[in-house]
């Protein structure tokens, strides 16, 4: 990906975050955590496409993608997904990412 393509993708992400910030003032509370983990996943995708990702980042993204729509399920399901994702990240803290 060239610099312009990279900047374009980051701009798309920035716009997603900024519009979310505004809309979340009126949206259901759980959309906030959903947008945060979704942003993490989108960011990892952009880094990946630019050849700047790592195994641990990709693993976090896959974990998020596999469970993020639990936001539309029960509160317990979503909380469980977020909780396990936190420990998934914690377990990866000491890995270098190579």
């Amino acid at each position: 990906m060239d610099d312009k393509g990279f900047e374009d993708k980051i701009f798309g992400l920035v716009s997603y975050v900024v519009v979310s910030a505004r809309n979340l003032l009126e949206e259901p509370a759980r959309y906030g955590p959903f947008r945060l983990v979704d942003t993490a996943s989108r960011l990892i995708n952009i880094l990946d496409e630019a050849g700047m990702s790592s195994d641990r980042l990709k693993a976090v993204r896959d974990k998020i993608e596999a469970g993020k729509y639990s936001a539309m399920g029960t509160e317990e399901e979503f909380e469980q997904f977020l909780e396990t994702t936190v420990f998934f990240v914690v377990d990866a803290i000491d890995n270098t990412g190579d």
């Binding site: 701009f11 798309g12 716009s15 997603y16 519009v19 979310s20 809309n23 947008r35 979704d38």
Partner: peptide, 12 residues
């Protein structure tokens, strides 16, 4: 479509 997605966080 790309522009619309930028202002539509719910468009997944």
């Amino acid at each position: 479509m790309k522009k619309l997605k930028m202002v539509s966080p719910g468009l997944l």
